[in-house]
Design a protein around this nucleic acid. Structure first.
Lengths: 105, 105
DNA sequence: CCGAATCCCTAACGATACTG
DNA sequence: CAGTATCGTTAGGGATTCGG
């Protein structure tokens, strides 16, 4: 059992990790199907994409809507809480552009 | 060899991780000695604190200054690039306060 | 006082194959 | 199409001990 009283740490707890920022960014432009997300996020495995989406869902940042069709269709949409991360990403993008035009690893 | 053309990912690459935000935040209030950092960051081990400081140094976010005294003294100071992260942290703090007053794990 | 060196553990990430 | 299931890899972090 662990408590975070630092709001910055709390935020990073939710949007941190290797893939979550990209997932959230892609969804900022509107609802997407699972396959569409996979296409726009190169090199992510389906397993990891599923895991990350489930975590974002249980954190209340997005909603998963499953249609009982054949073939199946599943759509992911940001909640207002998820959309409200826009300002955070924007500020990070500004800093990244000013300081790290391209980061080589 | 890996390239990041997403500025958000680039930013998180630099400030992400479990301890870096807290380290940077503590240094926002001015130069600190190694020991002072350890005191203000509970539960971090010396080894990890050293590692993280070295990474932040090689990323150009802070400067390490070593005085040849006995007992030794080492001070860490944010560079202008490091200080310029203020806006990013501020935005994350706002979001964290609005959405995650306290996160329980 | 400020580390370096060593060893260890776990969670995150990934490759691949299979399924309703 | 949108996942599970399984197994394997790896990087981050931690405990402890030693040294200038």
């Amino acid at each position: 059992m662990e408590f975070y009283d630092c709001p910055v740490t709390a935020t990073l707890e939710v949007i941190g990790g290797k893939w979550k920022p990209i997932i959230l960014y892609v969804l900022m432009s509107g609802t997407k199907r699972f396959g569409a997300l996979a296409v726009r996020i190169p090199n992510i495995s389906r397993k990891v994409l599923t895991e990350q989406l489930r975590e974002l869902e249980s954190d209340g940042l997005l909603i998963r809507r499953k249609y009982k069709e054949i073939p199946p269709r599943v759509e992911y949409t940001l909640t207002p809480e998820g959309k409200s991360l826009w300002d955070v990403f924007n500020e990070m993008a500004i800093w990244g552009n000013n300081n790290r035009r391209i980061v080589k690893k």
